[in-house]
Design a protein around this nucleic acid. Structure first.
Lengths: 129, 129
DNA sequence: AAGTATATACGAAACCTTTCGTAAAGTCAA
DNA sequence: TTGACTTTACGAAAGGTTTCGTATATACTT
């Protein structure tokens, strides 16, 4: 998170970023097909969004071939961290604890995952002490 | 969370809800003053927002006296749960675990809180086993 | 070469959220 | 009762996001 002026992606932009993060550099056609797996969106709509994202720096595009190839312009973890901070303030008034408790309480988490979290906590307590 | 069609509050609406949750039934004047503690907003702007919230069911209002009194129309925990679900999907592709790890890693949490979380995890593991 | 298909560019409509000006009505004090 | 003040109501402007129609260019097929 070196970038000082972080841009907050809109909902649609985030949806597209998720695809770029998950699949790597992609064409508009591919992204649009993916989106249409679970909701209807016109091709030019997706195109426009991705062009806007390129303008904003949220995506990069390679225009060497006629069919442009887009890739994410911001890192997944930086973006998650940034959005998490905002969400935490807006929804939980900054209480990280409450958010974690809600999350653990409401979404099933596998025993392995729980163990992993416990390990992380223990590591933090050791480092901290 | 009995309500089946949950409304997603906008950012401004959530800001106002936080105040209603924290302080209980309040007048527009009070809410507006609170908002102005950390950013400038016109009185009629706040009034309009609260009227809209009443329309949507996000707030209730008592119009007995000339000065209307508004209270939250949705519960804090239901709303948090609902927003958390959406945020989790949109930002962490549904991985509760990743969200928790990010949160614990990035925001300082006191030793007491960490213990509390550990206790919760252990309780879950016992219940689950 | 002509016709079909697929790509980008552009602009504007549609929609939502936020902001505020103005009007109308109620309250209060001198 | 008049004037200053506060409140709600209303509507529309301003700003941002999403959607898509249309134009233009390029490639592919027969």
């Amino acid at each position: 998170m070196t970038d000082r002026k972080m841009i907050k992606p809109t909902e649609s932009e985030l949806e597209i970023l998720q695809l770029l993060w998950a699949h790597g550099p992609s064409t508009v056609r591919f992204v649009n097909d993916q989106l249409n797996e679970y909701r209807e969106v016109g091709y030019t709509t997706t195109l426009k969004l991705m062009q806007i994202m390129a303008d904003k720096g949220l995506a990069r595009r390679n225009t060497e071939s006629r069919t442009h190839v887009y890739s994410a312009g911001v890192s997944e973890s930086d973006t998650q961290e940034h959005l998490l901070k905002k969400f935490l303030d807006a929804t939980f008034r900054g209480s990280a604890m409450k958010l974690v408790m809600q999350t653990l309480g409401n979404h099933e988490t596998s025993p392995e995952e729980l163990d992993e979290i416990k390990a992380l906590i223990e590591k933090m307590e050791k480092d901290n002490h």
